[in-house]
């Protein structure tokens, strides 16, 4: 995972940290963070902003018995060992699809390409795409934002080549035809949203942060 060339932008990192993204976007961001220390560090920098804001926020009194009730909560939780299950796919994704890509229920969407839609909240959609080596994903524009993270293999489109760990961010201005590299099938995680939420306020907020 040392060769990641295409990273998350500050807009998405801030949105992830602030908890403002739809679940499908959180999933793809978390999966990339697990593969990419550069973005992981950047996401934690944005978390620090949240930490400072928490310090500065006005207090709201807790009930009188809040501390004993909390201690009671703590004692109720059974001691559990952190499970050390090594999975072949990144942990955040494994929580949605299980520990292997072999058991995915793929459905054909044309030209040999298959997909599996993951169960997330409705405001955006996460899916896995299976693109056989050398095949082309049917031409598509976007109404909103589309994120694509390579999990296996590689693909190229009009803009660049994307290999494992790379994330492509495409908005409605981009019409592209991703093509899997010859020699290996390509599996990607994608997230797409409804146009409204993402295109209105978030980019404008984030642009201000890009000048850091």
């Amino acid at each position: 995972m040392n060769d990641i060339k295409h990273h998350l932008n500050d807009e998405l990192l801030l949105g992830y940290s602030a908890g403002a993204l739809p679940e499908a976007f959180n999933l793809i961001v978390a999966t990339h963070l697990e593969m990419c220390d550069k973005c992981r560090a950047a996401a934690q920098a944005f978390d620090s902003v949240g930490g400072v804001l928490l310090d500065e926020t006005a207090k709201v009194s807790m009930s009188k018995d809040a501390l004993p009730k909390t201690l009671a909560l703590i004692s109720k939780v059974p001691k559990r060992k952190d499970s050390e299950q090594k999975t072949e796919i990144p942990n955040p994704l494994a929580a949605y699809v299980g520990s292997s890509l072999d058991n995915i229920k793929w459905r054909p969407i044309g030209m040999g390409v298959r997909q599996a839609v993951l169960k997330t909240s409705k405001s955006a959609t996460a899916r896995l795409l299976y693109i056989p080596a050398g095949s082309v994903v049917p031409d598509h524009g976007h109404r909103g934002t589309e994120l694509t993270l390579v999990l296996k293999g590689a693909f190229s489109d009009e803009t660049a080549k994307f290999t494992v760990g790379d994330i492509e961010m495409a908005d409605q201005s981009i019409e592209h035809t991703p093509t899997a590299e010859i020699g290996e099938d390509c599996i990607c995680l994608t997230a797409t949203d409804a146009p409204l939420r993402f295109n209105s306020w978030f980019p404008r907020l984030a642009q201000r942060f890009l000048r850091i």
Partner: peptide, 29 residues
């Protein structure tokens, strides 16, 4: 890698997403 406030903020944020927005919160390991 984090101040205490930052770390507690992330726990509170995740609780907020989980309990109020009823969504799962994917996080890196």
């Amino acid at each position: 890698r984090a101040s205490v406030s930052t770390w507690i903020f992330t726990i509170a944020r995740n609780k907020n997403i989980d309990a109020l927005r009823k969504q799962r919160r994917p996080e890196p390991e």
